[in-house]
Write a protein that binds this DNA or RNA. Structure first.
Lengths: 140, 140
DNA sequence: TTAGCTGCAAATTATTTGCATTCCG
DNA sequence: CGGAATGCAAATAATTTGCAGCTAA
């Protein structure tokens, strides 16, 4: 990732490193900017929230990070695994808010059909299922 | 929809009617709360933005309206067509921001697999493809 | 009549921006 | 050294809330 930055005359500052570490240590989670701010503060107390936002935007542009929105009023970020790796997908419980990931990638065919019909050049997709998780079903 | 409201002791006020009309007249668009506010104001100038938000949330709870987020910093709303009607999906151009709908519903099988494996009770889903529309491809 | 609604203004929350200062390469 | 990057505080923007007055059923 250092090379990703260097390629555009960007710098690897301690703040950026700290943020990367947090993101790496919380893989498979969906952190809000504020979550990341608080966590990063532990290792680097002087950091400001603006730096968090600026850094996350930068990382997202570089493809190192994915920004997600689950409709809870704030953006959520995660480290972007596998470069080309088609994004994993999410199961969201509408009762307790649990977010579970899964990795089936059965969308290729559908993607091809859509691309052909719409003449879109598709670069990515986002698939989510909403419903009730096992536990919440039990409680109902 | 009057009955939907009545069933919960809710009222069909002129404000709510005005908002429904706007939503109906702008099917297949994805209006922000502010868009809806400005449009509704034309027919009902005294309306306040808070009423717009409260009404949209209510309608979404009742299933009359879908709230969407496209990552542009604000929620977007659309009239919910076909009750059971599995939501249509979106193609989003990352260059010009165009949002195109399509209605293939080839997700049933996938949904079933996911439901079985995860023990989730799936009630809805959201599928989006990101990429470049025909026009933007031409310009590149 | 009376609970549900409304408009307004003030309060929140998430995110962005301006700027003087600091620091990586 | 010089442009990038940072922290801070102030500015935006979207959405929510409190409340006193209004109104649909």
């Amino acid at each position: 990732m250092k090379s990703l930055l260097a390629a555009k005359d960007l710098r690897l500052t301690p703040q950026r490193e700290a943020i990367i570490k947090i993101l790496l240590s919380k893989r498979n989670q969906h952190l809000s900017a504020d979550d990341i701010y608080l966590l990063t503060k532990e290792a680097y107390p002087e950091i400001g929230i603006a730096t968090i936002y600026r850094t996350l935007e930068l990382f997202a542009d570089l493809g190192m990070v994915n920004k997600l929105e689950f409709g809870d009023g704030c953006g959520r970020y995660e480290f972007n695994e596998g470069q080309e790796g088609h994004s994993h997908h999410h199961l969201i419980c509408e009762k307790c808010g649990a977010i579970i990931e899964f990795n089936e990638d059965l969308l290729e065919d559908l993607e091809e059909i859509i691309a052909r019909e719409s003449k879109f050049k598709i670069t990515n997709h986002c698939l989510r299922f909403y419903g009730y998780c096992e536990e919440c079903q039990a409680k109902m």
